[in-house]
Design a protein around this nucleic acid. Structure first.
Lengths: 340, 340
DNA sequence: TTATCCAAGGTTAGCGATAACCTTAAAGCT
DNA sequence: AGCTTTAAGGTTATCGCTAACCTTGGATAA
């Protein structure tokens, strides 16, 4: 590699060129203090000519104020979390904050490492996904943080300074009511990797107990070692319908699994929703679907990120914020045109 | 907001508690230098009891060596770039590097801002997406960097220290050969937002010129103001087939658009591949498809990220690396079962 | 006239760590 | 015994920047 890297230009060099002190340059570039127009001009000119680039590490170290916001999500390539992240970025970037992203892969031990690494960069705020078990080490680290921390994606429990997300318990109840309103009585749940995902588990439990209150026993078909994707949804639905052919309503962990399930039901000649009712979760299928429209619970993913980011900005200004923001959920009725 | 944040614990405090100097603590925690077993033990104990958390900013500033790698991709919520990023993370995280992610949204001016912001954190390396026009400001900034820089996703041009990605020109030729092998002569290209995406443009041009060499004039149906999604693919395919009903082969910008196109062709009663041949790009549809299998060019997205990260590690060790790594592309034949 | 104020900019002392070098006492060598 | 070596740890001087305070000369007020 070209070992001939350019020397880094510091404030002192700009100061030398402009004939002023380092401090003056610092003030001009940050637009604080009283500096005359001519001097500002001269300093800016010098900085530009030298190609000066500030060193944010030094700045943060010195001022003890950073513009880094650390975000830890379970997976970057899961569109759901990626969209929450987009919402966060959309609010923070225009305010000059940089987001620092970590991917925990739903692994609590990776999450601890990430929290430690993130905190060591002195972030101005920390955004964590709510849907995971937090290890004792993680709790201890969080207790020692000196920045606000926000929980994303789950507002059923408030362990941190603020939570933004749906109530997964409400989601479970919404689905239960949907089935009950349609007079269904043989209801099943299909999901995967529930051991990793507390939020999904909460939906499952809420569905189960809401149905139990109506005297209905939920059938659950789940597995822990397959991905939460369409193929798994298809596979589990096939198993489910073999073992329980009487089922007339299925709630899936997410939309991808629901589409897989739909595919099997279609092939098996079980019309949706006439013979069997299907409900997904997330609303991801809505934007991409061309003709198939799945019944699903639409979650405002981008808005969750935005609300979390806004709350963070307020907390950094020491403005009061409520404990949480609860995303409103919407059960969107689908159609059943089954082609792409 | 609990305003009662814990005071941060520094090396000096750990040193005080352990009865040694700051330097000794620093050496123990970094596992360098000659420190006796008993002292190490005492220092570790003190650090643990105080809940010491190193300040990476100070460490980096002082040592002039950072463990931050900056990555700028066009979009976080586009699965293609997200998977490249996952590959990068998979290699770098175990080596103790943190990735710093920026989303340029295909906007060159956002990209410049991001490069500036990233460089101000003194990263150990910079990964940039290759498929965008680089502004003059960005070039100037890059010229002043003092870390290795790698281009992702495109290895047709090598502006930086290393490139990892497919040759988009080869991709275009592959598609052309596929059509020619099948004896097709009325060929079209469907895409969107080509003004933003140099890589897609390269594929388009390569397809066009390969066909021209065979005496075939490519019909292009593109627009700049709609998203590169299924709906747009469907819409443009409908337009295309109205204006050019003779078309018998279509290459789409990506798989999502191709699925949209497939949906229209199916509805219009044009069987694929008998009446008309369709080819997508990326291979994203392969993993998620349950029954529809689109013919597409599969790109090893995760591997691209891994290769880029490995090259970066090598460059940081001052080991020699080649100029680029070219991802092998595979044209995967689909089937046409059209349901989900 | 003299005290006061303010615009414009400079000085000093860190922020929390590490590189590079220095010290010391005990052990080893001839 | 006298010299070298080494293990174990300490000192000093930054890294690049900013907070907090200080200086100065002219304008303004009393």
């Amino acid at each position: 590699m070209d070992s001939e890297r350019p020397k880094t230009v510091t404030l002192a060099e700009v100061a030398g060129k402009a004939g002023v002190s380092k401090m003056t340059v610092s003030k001009v570039l940050r637009e604080v203090g009283n500096i005359s127009q001519e001097t500002r001009q001269r300093v800016r000119q010098a900085a530009h000519e030298l190609g000066y680039l500030p060193n944010s590490l030094a700045g943060t170290l010195s001022s003890r104020r950073s513009r880094i916001v650390a975000v830890i999500i379970p997976s970057i390539s899961d569109i759901v979390y990626a969209e929450v992240l987009s919402g966060v970025n959309a609010i923070l970037r225009p305010k000059g904050f940089q987001t620092f992203i970590g991917e925990s892969q739903f692994d609590p031990s990776v999450e601890v490492d990430l929290i430690r690494a993130m905190l060591s960069f002195q972030p101005a705020g920390l955004l964590l996904n709510g849907g995971m078990a937090r290890s004792a080490d993680a709790q201890a680290l969080l207790a020692r943080r000196n920045c606000p921390a926000i929980q994303l994606w789950d507002c059923d429990r408030h362990a941190l300074d603020f939570s933004a997300g749906p109530s997964h318990e409400e989601a479970g109840r919404l689905v239960a009511n949907h089935f009950l309103d349609r007079g269904l009585k043989r209801i099943a749940y299909v999901g995967a990797e529930l051991d990793k995902d507390l939020s999904a588990r909460r939906r499952h439990l809420a569905l189960k107990s809401s149905l139990a209150a109506a005297g209905i026993d939920l059938v659950s078909m789940t597995c822990e070692d397959r991905p939460r994707q369409a193929v798994t949804g298809r596979f589990l639905t096939e198993q489910l319908m073999r073992m329980h052919p009487e089922i007339d309503g299925i709630h899936f962990l997410n939309d991808a699994m629901a589409l897989g399930g739909l595919s099997y039901l279609h092939q098996a000649g079980l019309p949706v929703p006439e013979r069997i009712s299907v409900v997904g979760f997330n609303g991801t299928s809505l934007a991409n679907a061309v003709r198939t429209r799945l019944t699903t619970i639409d979650v405002p993913r981008t808005e969750i990120g935005e609300k979390a980011a806004q709350a963070l900005l307020q907390m950094m200004e020491a403005e009061p914020v409520p404990d949480f923001w609860q995303a409103r959920l919407e059960l969107v009725q689908g159609n059943t045109t089954l082609a792409i």
